[in-house]
Amino acid sequence: MARIIVVTSGKGGVGKTTTSAAIAMGLAKKGHKTAVIDFDVGLRNLDLILGCERRVVYDFVNVINDEATLNQALIRDKRCKQLYILPASQTRYKDALTKEGVGKILEELSKTFKYIVCDSPAGIERGANLAMYFADDAFVITNPEIASVRDSDRMLGILSSKSKRAENGDEPINEYLLLSRYDPKRVKLGEMLSVEDVQDILSLHLLGVIPESQSVLNASNSGTPVILDEDSNAGQAYADIVARYLGEDKPHRFIDEDKKGLFGRLFRSK
């Protein structure tokens, strides 16, 4: 059985698609057969971030409507053979998604894949609800600002009450916090919420902090998931996150402003 991961946030523009692409690529690079599905029907972006936009023939909605088979719609990544992408339809609306259709596709994918990453659209409407409904694990992406934190909190409430697991009374979805676009300098100046502030409000297990980085934008524009940019701090942050998710013990990085080397890191002020 595959593990279904939903990448969600409530608020838009916090980095759901960037994270979905990076996490899926990271899992695939670790040797796990991974599928990543774009649930943002009508506002398709994942294919761009993964650099496969020119190879899209069929999409998610085609498969739901039985106009194409799953194998026809899945796009295999050229850089990592273990990664497959199921793009969203750009010409439809989110009403095209049905619970039965999504369930059927996830079930079929579960037979052959190890991980299925669902890239949720923003908001708490149909697309977002269906993206999280079947999930086993949830990656909740939050920016260190109050509106994003509140939207994530709302999403957590929905995860704990409207998912399939909640409806069936099964074990609840594992919820993980990913804090993205974090800038320790601005935290120090009081312009941004700190990791502690966010954790205090959300009381959630922190899976990782992704620093604000130019490399994310560069990666998006070039269609390369940022995790492949191993020199960038954002790429390293995502690699850590994947490792932690898979059970490795990695200390948190990028939380404090430090370029002091090992000595400075050992005697961190906080």
Partner: peptide
């Protein structure tokens, strides 16, 4: 026993 989230 669980946190009561925004909107609940």
């Amino acid at each position: 026993t669980q946190p009561i989230r925004s909107g609940q």
